[in-house]
């Protein structure tokens, strides 16, 4: 009896030690965000305020954000955080040879993706706007940004990934060893699940409401980009929201969906857009020449390809369950 009592006490004490799940749902950056941390409540609350701060600084539409100020006056001093994101973003533009370009905003706006007033701009309009798209003309010295005449910055393609990195860092500092951050499709899995297994992140099928498959990850970001996420149709032609900075038109590279898996959220976020723009060949090349990320690609024809590093952790589901998965290797 006594032993049973002691045992019961021990069980109660132990279960009390296991950190409880703290979670929050936030509506910010035009999307729904879900945060879960196995640890102190403050960690989640801190992350929520971090999200709102980042939104206030980085929003291209809010009037007094860092980005809006720089865009309004062709440059100026920005917050240290904004500067460090901008620095990383410019590196990613260079890495992808301009397939990611943070100055493509004038074209995104011309196609109506910022307001929802969609339209197909004319040849001439696209041509003249393209002249203003060039990330390499943006200079950053310390915290001071200088834009060439008429250029506009938009960090939308990297902001959520960067915020997920910041939240993960904040979670770690607060002693959280296990957590899951989903910023509207930008996932960051922190550590392993409390039961010691890997996090299972589902990837949506670009052609239906079902699933393409799932990747099992730990300490890793998972970000998906695809034209199916937002688009409009005119005269039977579908125009997607990802604009190719080199043509000024919606990307049409033969890929339907791109998922990037890697430790750094901002890298995965930026690359998911860039790879979608690049297409299969250039993406495979980029992957072979660099490390730090892995890819799941779906072509417009419905073919599924994964890079070597995901071969064992990617599980196809639903209609892809019995289909062929091609593996891209380093040779």
């Amino acid at each position: 009896m006594r032993r049973a009592f002691a045992l019961a006490l021990a069980v109660i004490a132990l279960s009390g030690c296991a950190p409880r799940a703290q979670s929050s749902t936030v509506f910010a950056m035009d999307t729904v965000m879900e945060l879960t941390a196995y640890g102190p409540r403050q960690a989640v609350d801190g992350a929520v305020s971090l999200i709102h701060e980042a939104e206030d600084r980085l929003s291209v539409t809010a009037e007094d954000s860092d980005i809006a100020r720089v865009n309004g006056s062709g440059g100026g001093e920005v917050d240290g955080d904004t500067a460090s994101l901008l620095k990383r973003a410019l590196e990613l533009c260079k890495l992808t040879d301009g397939a990611l370009d943070i100055t493509v905003y004038p074209l995104v706006r011309a196609w109506g993706f910022t307001t929802g007033a969609y339209r197909v701009p004319g040849e001439e309009e696209i041509g003249s706007l393209l002249e203003k798209v060039d990330y390499s003309a943006v200079t950053l010295e310390g915290n001071t940004v200088t834009l060439p005449e008429g250029a506009l910055l938009d960090l939308g393609a990297v902001a959520k990934g960067w915020v997920s990195d910041r939240i993960a860092a904040g979670f770690r500092e607060a002693g959280v060893r296990s957590g899951l951050i989903n910023l509207g499709g930008n996932v960051m899995a922190l550590g392993k699940k409390p039961d010691g297994s890997d996090w299972s992140v589902g990837i949506r099928d670009p052609f239906s409401e079902g699933l393409l498959g799932a990747v099992s990850v730990r300490d890793s970001a998972v970000v998906t980009s695809g034209g199916y996420q937002r688009y409009f149709e005119e005269n039977g032609v579908r125009y997607c929201h990802i604009i190719d900075p080199r043509t000024g038109r919606p990307a049409d590279s033969g890929l339907a969906s791109v998922t990037v898996v890697g430790a750094e959220g901002v890298l995965c976020d930026g690359l998911s857009t860039a790879v979608y723009v690049m297409g299969l060949e250039a993406a495979s090349q980029l992957w072979r020449e660099n490390s730090g990320f892995e890819l799941v690609l779906v072509t417009d024809g419905g073919e599924v390809l994964v890079t070597e590093g995901l071969e064992d952790v990617f599980k196809p589901m639903d209609v892809y369950k019995d289909g062929e998965i091609r593996v891209i290797r380093r040779d």
Binding site: E34, L180, N182, G185, N186, V187, A189, K193, W199, S200, V201, G202, I203, R204, D205, P206, L211, L212, A214, V222, V223, T224, G226, Q229, S257, T259, M317
Partner: peptide, 10 residues
């Protein structure tokens, strides 16, 4: 849906 997933992207 599938119970084995923790979250979804896409």
């Amino acid at each position: 849906g599938d119970a084995s997933l923790d979250t979804e992207v896409g």
